[in-house]
Design a protein around this nucleic acid. Structure first.
Length: 720
DNA sequence: GACCTGCTGCGGATTG
């Protein structure tokens, strides 16, 4: 790979995507040849712009590149929110060498120093984008594409782009992202050093059915001020913690949980186990709401091999900083996606050692009121499906074809701030016709500008030039303008004046309540609603807080693989005895319900449809039925319809099947809370519908699923 | 019943 990359960089003018597993030497593969081209000609302008999604990664790469470039006399600079302004001024005065920057800082450069960018980057030769895959399909990715395009417009020429990416199923998507409209001209270099040994175990656990607390007993618990709102650790969680303790203690490992709440829960449980046995604690939590200091402490312990460290973490330790090879990876609950499971696995088993993965799956004990999702053991089935896809090296592609109108609003405001004004046709040409918002027509753009005028984000001078309106000025001049994504308001959590981290504002806070945070137990002693500060002191009791968040989405292929697993009879060797038993139970229930030939199940007054499709398709079916006045919900890919007369439902489904795919934009009109991205509030209802339809709906998939359901038994009865 | 990321600002007068 290194040799191929060197040839591509040194011999030709093409843009390049270099794909390899985590820490596969991508940085060196790109920078060794680039630096050899820079020797003796590294001053007068920034020569290489390296863009990274993380400040931590910039700091990491800075020390590596600085060492590499020192004797070549190539200056290396970093530019992000934690860098002194004096250092930034130094770069502006004498631009040179390699500049490491975040998309947000690049945005700030355009807004605040629009006229200086051409001087800073006049002699730019390369743009290197690290962790390219993490940008694809996101608001931030579209922002980055726009910034790179605006950079080329500013320096009035094309600049070579090099993307460093994880391996994707379809690498041409990475090429298209790196150089929109010209993917065939991008050179793809993929590391072949992928297939080393993998050891997998999936362990099943059954959680005893809980007696649901009545509303009364629940509220009494909440009101108890002494903080006895302690969690009763359930038996399955204790068994999982005991197993983790036994197999991981003494090692360097990562335990991925699917939520910050669960990270806190298990970190606390494992620390208490260490205390009970009077051994030093080796288990530490790591997630995005912990203070930077606490996170860096854990990262330093992982890097320092002198004492065992096990981090219980969320996606924070999935990519980015170099922590060295872990001896094994644990995953609690089925992973968010196959792609993410692959990234997590990449943290273990380098240098010829096998990669080791243990997945812990919990299923509820089946009772008389269990829904089919539970009796079918869908958690376990999903995990098996994902492991099978991982072994076949299939990974979810990013969602393409989105409009990203919220990000377009940000970019329109930014272009106007950069240039001090712009004509509508110039803005459309720069951002849409030649830029990354290629699906936005001139007419749609005009509509968007009108709406921005209505909200006073823009005004138009007499000669037609667009200028920032009063509200637009206020937004652009705030420091939070530079990020394309929203961030929720948060409380700061302090213990003895030291920051522990943050809690989302949605969390109800009362003085005297106790909570688990940063793997320890605390009691709230004071709470300042104006300053958004919570003071805590150590405590013996506590439960992990809810952090909130939005549900994830599963891909069509994962659900189709689940169907295949349920229909099959093979029992994978990587399942433990309980997991095997759960798989057999799920398959028996699948056969009992005849789900291989019929996708409708009636239970009580609820009808369940099984489309075996991704969440975009099943949500589309659910919304379509709701628009027709059915009381429908979609959960884990299953559509449940309450109190629907079966004849009426059958007729409706047959009609939908005959109609063909629904008009997704029309369907979006029936959805009330579509807005979720940063500037969605400034869009008209019709633009928001266009955006939502492409972001969240799958009319084709929904229609195919309905047609399948109708053509199978269940809905066949043809009596008029 | 989800996760993560990021981020400003000047210029001239005065003093030693």
């Amino acid at each position: 790979m290194q040799e191929q990359a060197a040839h591509a960089i040194l011999d030709g003018p093409a843009d390049i995507v270099i794909a390899a597993a985590t820490a596969g030497g991508k940085t060196e593969a790109a920078f060794l040849p680039i630096c050899s081209l820079l020797v003796g000609a590294a001053t007068g302008s920034v020569r290489v712009l390296y863009v990274s999604p993380l400040k931590a990664l910039i700091n990491d790469q800075y020390s590596r590149l600085d060492a590499l470039c020192e004797h070549l006399e190539i200056p290396v600079h970093r530019w992000h929110g934690d860098v002194d302004t004096a250092k930034k001024h130094q770069v502006l005065r004498e631009p040179s060498g390699v500049l490491l920057i975040t998309p947000e800082s690049l945005e700030a450069l355009f807004v605040l120093r629009g006229t200086q960018v051409s001087g800073l980057c006049g002699g730019l030769q390369f743009v290197v984008v690290d962790e390219l895959h993490s940008f694809m399909g996101t608001e931030r990715g579209r922002q980055l594409q726009s910034l790179l395009h605006r950079l080329e417009l500013t320096v009035r020429r094309r600049v070579r782009r090099i993307g460093l990416s994880a391996t994707l199923g379809d690498m041409s998507l990475a090429a298209e992202f790196l150089r929109p409209r010209e993917r065939e001209r991008v050179t793809l270099i993929t590391s072949s050093a992928e297939g080393h040994e993998l050891r997998v175990q999936v362990r099943g656990y059954e959680r005893p059915a809980r007696i649901k607390p009545t509303a009364k007993s629940n509220s009494q618990l909440d009101q108890t001020p002494s903080g006895t709102g302690d969690t009763e650790d359930s038996l399955d969680d204790i068994s999982i913690a005991q197993h983790l303790f036994r197999v991981l203690r003494g090692s360097h490992s990562l335990v991925f949980a699917n939520s910050r709440m669960e990270v806190e829960f298990f970190a606390d449980l494992l620390r208490r186990e260490c205390e009970r046995l009077k051994v030093p604690n080796e288990f530490w939590p790591h997630h995005g709401s912990l203070s930077r200091d606490l996170r860096q402490d854990v990262e330093a312990m992982l890097k320092d091999r002198s004492r065992p460290t096990i981090a219980v973490c969320t996606t924070t330790l999935e990519l980015g900083i170099d922590i060295g090879a872990m001896s094994s990876i644990a995953q609690i609950g089925s992973p968010p996606s196959v792609a993410s499971l692959r990234q997590r696995l990449g943290r273990s088993g380098r240098r010829g050692d096998p990669a080791t993965l243990r997945v812990y799956v919990r299923e509820e004990e089946v009772t008389l009121d269990s829904a089919p999702q539970e009796t079918l053991r869908l958690q376990l089935i999903e995990t098996v499906a994902m492991v099978e896809l991982l072994l076949r090296q299939w990974y979810e592609p990013p969602v393409t074809g989105q409009l990203h109108l919220s990000t377009l609003v940000q970019q329109v405001l930014s272009v106007i701030a950069q240039c001090g004004g712009a004509r509508p046709i110039e803005a459309w040409t720069a951002l849409c016709k030649t830029g990354p918002f290629e699906s936005v027509s001139q007419g749609m753009f005009a509509g968007l500008l009108r709406e921005l005028g209505v909200h006073d984000l823009l005004t138009q001078s007499t000669d037609g030039t667009l200028l920032l309106g009063g509200a637009g000025e206020r937004i652009v001049n705030r420091y939070d303008f530079y990020a394309a994504f929203v961030s929720p308001e948060e409380y700061r959590l302090l213990a003895g004046g030291k920051p522990l981290g943050t809690l989302p504002i949605s969390q109800p806070i009362v003085e005297g309540m106790s909570l688990i945070f940063a793997g320890r137990r605390w009691r709230v002693v004071s709470f300042d609603e104006l300053q958004k500060v919570i003071e805590v002191v150590p405590s013996a009791a506590g439960k992990p807080p809810r952090f909130g968040g939005q549900g994830g989405t599963k891909h069509d292929v994962v659900r189709q693989e689940m169907f295949r697993v349920l229909r099959g009879s093979e029992v994978p060797r990587y399942l433990d005895a309980t997991a095997q038993q759960l798989l057999r139970e799920g398959r028996a229930e699948f056969r009992r319900l005849s789900l291989d030939t019929c996708s409708v199940v009636q239970r009580g007054d609820c009808t369940y449809l099984f489309p075996w499709r991704g969440d975009r398709a099943s949500n589309t079916i659910m919304l379509h039925l709701r628009a027709l006045e059915f009381d429908a919900v979609a959960e884990a890919g299953v559509v449940g319809i309450f109190k629907a007369p079966s004849a009426a439902l059958a007729t409706t489904l047959r009609r939908l099947s005959d109609m063909g795919p629904v008009d997704a934009v029309e369907l979006a009109r029936t959805v009330r809370n579509k807005g979720s991205e940063k500037y969605d509030w400034s869009l008209s209802e019709s633009l928001l519908c266009e955006d939502f339809a492409r972001r969240a709906l799958d009319p084709q998939g929904a229609w195919e699923a309905i047609a399948n359901i109708v053509s199978a038994r269940g809905v066949e009865s043809e009596s008029p």
